[in-house]
Design a binder for these strands. Structure first.
Lengths: 328, 328
DNA sequence: GCAATTTTTGCATACGTTTGCAAAATCACG
DNA sequence: CGTGATTTTGCAAACGTATGCAAAAATTGC
């Protein structure tokens, strides 16, 4: 049973505890002591206690990552990238599942108890009270793939509005007549922006648009799509890939529709599965790598203190595949 | 800028700092002080500093979760459940990505630096040195969905051998002649057990078996399956669902094979996607809920100290769907 | 080889809690 | 109301580290 402390190492190395601390925290120390301390440390198997260190430095090198649901494969991908990117910066990830059932606030309070150096909220809305609290405690927040009007928070998203518009342009250019939309969740700005951009572009061409809510739910989206097609739609823009797969399955297997011929389906995200031949989904690519990079970069800047809240928008691009008609 | 400590609360409440501590750590305190302290605490917005508490109690209420890759949708599901289950027990999850590129050991050392109360390793092998180290430090380890001969560790897996055998029985009973297997990774006991059980059951019936390695990689598995089918196979058992989807896609779109008629494909895991009509995959169900429950339960017992290493095997069952022939 | 300067070192304190101990307060009960 | 038993309370010492400060050692210039 071991609890090796810096004092133990100090004793063995014949130096003071402070010397050991200095060697491991990278402060100045002579070659001689460096050597002695390192030797003693490896002999005893000593490693500094991060918690004790945090207590005194006031920085835990822990980032709290709040994520709502991992059913949509976009988020596991983001989680993996995020965790690795933070690891590379010497930070670690304390993860919190904020299923819309449990209230986010209580969960976030617990996060704060761990003295996290920052919070990244992926696809989760934060209450104003919480935001104030974090600001008071000097804990930076970065919103990932979710915008929020209030709070003046740093946020990293795709250029959703422009993307929605671009998808609309594409569908019009490829000769679709009755264009419809299965939207995300009304409470998410991300979803609203996509829908708004899409609607604007159609309106600019004098077309009207039928929208049904999908709420990021596969089944609900599938049902909505069926209803839209029954109403004569020949193109459906779906709020994300995860729903789009459900839509394709339903159209194909419940309605017997040839997706990509009779009806075009376009998704959003470009998760790996979108490239699989069974779906071959035309979709707007959200470059998760770039987005994660930006989020981590902003977080680091905020922690260093030399940054003010900022809205980062990553472009992305349309990936044309077989689920949508190519020619007019 | 706030850093409200128990002393601040004590001052406001007119009691000693220890009194505050006692109220928040659930020790005995009179109704009167309870009241005074709580009032003062909420007024100041005080919450105990978990790190400081951990330093003295020696328990961080953090569990380190090591996970290799989230590409296989089985793991996001597990991660979500695990994190929630631990949250419910008052623990939190520090996540570590151990991509086979970065060496697991270094990553785990960092985990230990955070004084985690336990480590759950999902689908990751631990070096003997690491295991000794953890045992020395009294940190319990639970292996999830991965066995390990050595080390005498607690592990939670599916009854892989029996499951493999059952799949073989099923394929024989439904009249398949040339049965083949795309295996997982040789380095994983989980994969080896499934393959072994499968092979044994076939051998018991006097049949031989062609096996090609899939290494849990979608593309590699797809190529292997094509090769097997070219060699005349009429049934393929694939080491997990994630690979099976690749296999189905390849057979269907590259070879033009009617999966479920010409060739049967059986997977392992029963991830949600397996039920989607585009794949409709016959597969062995690993009850992730039960497995997570067992893993967390074992972990709690180990932390309490009243448990010895144990191997838990969850049964699971075959889910018959359209990717395999039903009748003989 | 000596004074002036720089680097290295140890001492002591602080970080925000929990907890053993003994004193103080409260309670039960004749 | 007094005595003994019980509960509540404050004091002070931990937990394992970082760091300001002053003393000691090493380095430099001449």
């Amino acid at each position: 049973m071991s609890k090796i402390t810096s004092s133990d190492v100090a004793k063995l190395a014949g130096v003071s505890q402070s010397a050991v601390s200095r060697v491991f925290s990278g402060a100045s120390a002579s070659k001689a002591t460096q050597e002695k301390v390192r030797r003693a440390a490896t002999e005893l198997g000593y490693r500094p206690n991060v918690l004790a260190r945090s207590l005194i430095t006031g920085r835990s090198r822990i980032i709290g990552l709040v994520v709502a649901y991992l059913e949509n494969p976009f988020y596991p991908d983001v989680l993996e990238r995020m965790s690795k990117a933070l690891q590379a910066e010497g930070y670690h990830t304390l993860i919190f599942m904020a299923s819309w059932t449990s209230d986010v606030d209580r969960v976030l309070e617990e996060l704060l108890d761990y003295q996290v150096d920052g919070i990244i909220a992926a696809s989760v809305a934060l209450s104003d009270g919480l935001i104030d609290r974090c600001r008071g405690a000097g804990i930076p927040i970065v919103l990932f793939n979710r915008g929020q009007e209030e709070g003046g928070l740093t946020q990293v998203t795709c250029a959703n509005r422009a993307a929605g518009a671009a998808v609309a342009q594409h569908l019009m250019a490829t000769g679709h007549e009755k264009i419809a939309h299965v939207s995300g969740w009304e409470g998410s700005m991300t979803g609203r922006d996509r829908a708004a951009g899409f609607a604007e572009a159609l309106a600019a061409d004098g077309r009207d648009l039928k929208v049904l809510p999908g709420d990021y739910d596969r089944e609900k989206a599938a049902a909505a799509a069926c209803e839209l097609v029954d109403g004569g739609a020949d193109a459906i823009f779906v709020g994300n890939d995860h729903m789009a797969f459900g839509v394709i399955d339903a159209l194909r297997h419940e309605r017997g529709i040839a997706v990509g011929k009779d009806v075009s389906v376009v998704g959003f995200d470009d998760v790996p599965m979108a490239a699989w031949p069974s779906y071959d989904l035309t979709t707007w690519q959200q470059p998760s790598g770039q987005m994660v990079e930006a989020a981590v970069d902003r977080m680091m800047a905020l922690i260093e203190g030399d940054a003010s809240p900022q809205r980062v928008e990553i472009e992305g691009r349309l990936i044309q595949r077989g689920s949508s008609r190519k020619e007019t």
